[in-house]
């Protein structure tokens, strides 16, 4: 019986100690946690996975450094999946600090794709990703709503040149790609209200397939669009990013984060359960003693 009382009145420093140990251990080790994939993330993956070689995906990098922790992993997993499958990508950045994020992502992913790697049991040879052939980065332009609409007419209308200054007509991969009609999927990875413009001006007017990657706090308010079919999927926060990393079999920072999050949550739940077990056992004993 003393045990149950102890369960109830444990010094909180044991909670701290266990939590620290679990977090540091989970952070430093390299095991992977099972991640439950939600249908709204699976649908994005299925869409990309179903695209044939040479298809075009537009990735809109609309976030800045303060949302990097949650959103960068989504970009990394998604773009790497595309490039491994030789799907061409067009990048846009409609938030002020987006280009920096995009350049960093392109550099890192190019580096990663140049090595041989196995995903989901399929071996991919490392290859050189070439600017202008495998991807085209259009850069930043202000007035995002107008840019989104403009690209519906022709990409070279808002963007006469790409980010590096090459006229768009001279970029090899943009030959034959005029507007959204030639794009198979648009993924908006965003930490702000540019998402609304992609939904209403972009998807609403041109009817392309749109998927969203959002920060954790934003996620809840975009579920209605999923219900109405305006978007094909949502990746929400670190959780969504980790799910996508799991689907693409490309563990990155989000899975690292979840590796800490899950055991930490479990520790907290464990302590709550312990406290309640102690509480009920104690109550039961008191009742019994009171009767006796």
């Amino acid at each position: 019986m003393e045990l149950f009382e102890r369960l109830m009145k444990l010094d909180r420093r044991w909670v701290f100690l266990l939590l620290i140990i679990v977090c540091v251990w989970a952070y430093a080790s390299s095991f992977s946690v099972p991640i439950l994939v939600m249908p709204e993330v699976q649908s994005i993956y299925d869409k990309v996975e179903g695209l044939p070689e040479g298809s075009v995906v537009l990735v809109a990098i609309d976030y800045d450094p303060n949302n990097l922790a949650e959103l960068h992993p989504m970009t990394y997993a998604l773009v790497e999946q595309c490039w491994r499958k030789k799907i061409k990508t067009i990048f846009t950045a409609l938030s002020m600090n987006g280009p920096g994020m995009c350049v960093q992502a392109i550099r890192d992913i190019t580096d990663s794709v140049s090595r041989d790697k196995e995903y989901n049991g399929v071996m991919y040879k490392g290859r050189e990703v070439v600017n202008g052939v495998d991807y085209c980065f259009l850069g930043y332009k202000p007035y995002y709503a107008i840019v989104i609409l403009g690209m519906g007419q022709a990409f070279n209308q808002p963007y006469p040149t790409d980010y590096y200054g090459t006229p768009l007509d001279e970029v090899p991969m943009m030959r034959g790609i005029i507007n959204y009609d030639q794009v198979d999927l648009v993924v908006d990875i965003s930490g702000g209200n540019i998402t609304d413009a992609w939904i209403s001006y972009g998807q609403g007017r041109f009817g392309f397939d749109l998927a969203l990657g959002l920060t954790g706090v934003m996620t809840a308010q975009y579920y209605p669009y999923l219900g109405s079919g305006q978007i094909i999927g949502i990746m929400g926060g670190l959780l969504g990013a980790a799910q996508y990393e799991k689907l693409t079999d490309n563990p990155g920072r989000a899975k690292d984060g979840m590796r800490v999050q899950l055991p930490a949550h479990l520790v907290i739940i464990l302590f709550i359960v312990m406290g309640n077990v102690g509480f009920f056992a104690n109550k039961w004993r008191m009742k019994r003693e009171g009767r006796a």
């Binding site: 107008i146 609409l149 001006y201 007017r205």
Partner: peptide, 13 residues
């Protein structure tokens, strides 16, 4: 008679 200065643009629709 002008000259007229651009003060902004809005999307079609």
């Amino acid at each position: 008679d002008g000259p007229f200065d651009s003060v902004g643009a809005v999307p079609a629709g």
